[in-house]
Design a protein around this nucleic acid. Structure first.
Length: 212
DNA sequence: AACTCGGGGCA
DNA sequence: TGCCCAGAGTT
């Protein structure tokens, strides 16, 4: 019983709610600004690291205006325990100043505006567009990329092609719950090194077990 | 297309 | 303890 990617999407949609409940719980920030900064900090870092860092960071600098008036050394000391802290300190300080000077302190809700900010690439922009502006976009990180290819929703090495491929087969209204599912499925079950196919609820439609 | 950033996770 | 990881930017 070979299934098309579209048929797999319909099957998966039945499972989403039960599979990994409590969507968006990790991204419940008070403003688009805080979401943007936390998402920049989240690159190559664990959720726990980000939560520890941002708690103190946002206590000192809850908005762009406040952060923009800080010294680089202050920002650096607040984020010093996270990966790439020097780059990230520079980036988020620059972002806060650009937001104040060019965007009236407001996070832009467009891809071009977001990707023009230092430290913000396609994936980070998509996270902000999705969570803060309710745009039906798919932030493709390595989890989403790996899981989508293993299941057989797409067939490509390139993450940007995974994003385009998923968008053609997932109905707009399903994009955000699918992103949540693909991300957590990759993190907890369909892991890069040791995928736990024995306990996987979607192995019936997945290309991976047969191939490995 | 390869390289850098650099602490955390895991064998 | 040493290898590998993952977004964005640079060369």
């Amino acid at each position: 019983m070979k299934q098309t990617p579209e048929e797999k999407i319909v099957f998966l949609n039945e499972l989403l709610g039960a599979a990994y409940p409590n969507p968006k719980s990790e991204l419940n920030y008070e403003s688009p600004f805080q979401l943007l900064i936390a998402t920049i900090m989240a690159a190559q870092a664990t959720d726990r690291q980000v939560n520890v860092i941002t708690r103190e960071l946002f206590r000192c600098a809850p908005d762009a205006e406040t952060m923009s008036r800080m010294e680089l050394d202050e920002v650096r000391s607040l984020v010093r325990s996270i990966n790439y802290c020097n780059n990230k300190a520079k980036n988020i300080l620059a972002v806060s100043r650009i937001l104040v000077e060019r965007w009236q302190g407001v996070v832009p809700g467009t891809r071009e505006g977001l990707e023009s900010l230092p430290g913000v690439g396609r994936k980070t922009a998509n996270v902000v567009l999705s969570n803060a502006f309710d745009q039906p976009v798919m932030p493709v990180d390595t989890h989403v990329h790996r899981v989508s290819n293993r299941i057989g929703l797409v067939h490509t090495e390139k993450p940007e092609e995974t994003e385009a491929g998923l968008m053609t087969i997932i109905p707009e209204a399903w994009v955000i719950p699918f992103h949540h599912y693909l991300l957590l499925h990759g993190r907890y079950t369909c892991k890069a090194k040791k995928p736990d196919c024995a306990h996987c609820t979607v192995s019936g439609i997945c290309d991976y077990p047969a191939k490995n």
